[in-house]
Design a binder for these strands. Sequence first.
DNA 1: CGCCAACTTGATGGCTGTCAAGTCAGGTGG
DNA 2: CCACCTGACTTGACAGCCATCAAGTTGGCG
Lengths: 276, 276
Amino acid sequence: MGASSEGQRCRNHDDGTLTQIKGSGDHGAKQNVIHLTISPPKTSCACSQCSLREICLPHGLSEKEILKLDTTVATRRRLKRGQHLYRAGESFEALYAIKTGFFKTDTLLEDGRDQVTGFQMAGEILGMDGISAENHTCNAVALEDSEVCIIPFAQLENLLREIQTLQHHFHQVMSREIVRDHSIMMLLGTMRAEERLAAFLLNLSQRFTARGYSPQEFHLRMTREEIGSYLGLKLETVSRVFSRFQEEGFISVQQKHIRILNIAPLKQLLAHPQQP
Amino acid sequence: MGASSEGQRCRNHDDGTLTQIKGSGDHGAKQNVIHLTISPPKTSCACSQCSLREICLPHGLSEKEILKLDTTVATRRRLKRGQHLYRAGESFEALYAIKTGFFKTDTLLEDGRDQVTGFQMAGEILGMDGISAENHTCNAVALEDSEVCIIPFAQLENLLREIQTLQHHFHQVMSREIVRDHSIMMLLGTMRAEERLAAFLLNLSQRFTARGYSPQEFHLRMTREEIGSYLGLKLETVSRVFSRFQEEGFISVQQKHIRILNIAPLKQLLAHPQQP
DNA sequence: CGCCAACTTGATGGCTGTCAAGTCAGGTGG
DNA sequence: CCACCTGACTTGACAGCCATCAAGTTGGCG
């Protein structure tokens, strides 16, 4: 909507607070940046060596092509939990591929309200919102200690003109982001609280599975408030629905540790519009 | 909320019915396709001659570059009100630039629920959701008699590798779609009904203005139900809020004819999170 | 002129937000 | 090592916004 210019003050505060909770906040962030400048951890930074190469940007490339990509994606950045990878308003220079860790992105409204627009994990690309206006329109925050590969965008565009496979795949990655957003709009526009949480859990489970983790058991990196923000619910509602799911025997919840005990009823929640 | 009790079939019906109302439905669509095959209306189909070239794909291109684009974007397609430009599941071949007219896109959930994901007008690009999976994930329907320029995607990618300016601009167009989706997620996740409608009206006004139409006065091409679907509301709520806005003197509503009488309070609705 | 879809408006109810209190877990400092 | 403190979470009571159900009006079209 037209309502997109991000605001001035209030929410920055909220966000800052959250940041301080999760890690050491901005202070930590700056320390780390300084540390990086002193000794950049360029440890084994090649796509060609990366275990994620089939679910990340290099998907489908030949050996020769991946080696070309290596020259563009040459540096990494480490982030501690709570650090910002980028902030709304900062100039856009690069995309980031998540090597390890877990992120959230959120956008701000003028009046201070904000919303989590996504949770990202290994192999996913961050920063595509920044291409349109040459600066970022949302914040990206590490929800656990993380490492990202820096993909300078101007160089990437050069490479896309050379490597057709990469070009097409990059377009697919951007398109997938659009499709993903549509499904969240669907969730926000038509689903009830239980359905939203079920969809959320199933989505996480599926993405963890794709990365070799257990489909039934995982650790939530985000707070109830962040889940609620993402799903258009209040944290109390998230908590209540988790409790209800537990009472029904669908899942077991211990703080941030989730175990899916019976996946069928969760899926059914999404298949049926309502109980009648 | 999730109380969208329209089950697996009702909604498909609604959609079909709507189609038939607005134009001549599928029947008409097929007739038109046939007609196109017999005498393709390739009337003046050059980006270089198009009045929309600055807000559409050719934005920022040199004369020479636009002429190259002309060879790729060589055909148009006319659609009557209610006709589908494409449907979810159809194989993806091309993007479409709207030359004239007005569209909606909507996605379906397995259980039959659907949601309008956007309204598109002249100069905007349709079909980018299809890139990721090689087939469309949503329906695009003309809400008035319309004309689109067909942009075969494989050819476009070839061109993007030749013309750096075009490449960058195309990435910006895709990114803008992502940013737009984020602001709708924001709307759906955090705004109340009045705020949603205000944002909706202001957004339409702004986009009409950018196309040389009146900022204060315009004709809604979509039904209350489609507006509601887009904004995550029921049609009755849309109607009630329109009435409330009219009582307050913000707008005048006569069916689909909207006149904005006092824009300030509409903007204020978006600036203030709440009444306290 | 009659039909039908689109729309408006009213009455009612339910889902989820709000407010409030209390519990739990992890980290810090004595 | 333990007590304490803080933030995250849970749970309850209540209320409000919007959905639902229902009836009636309007406007376009055959």
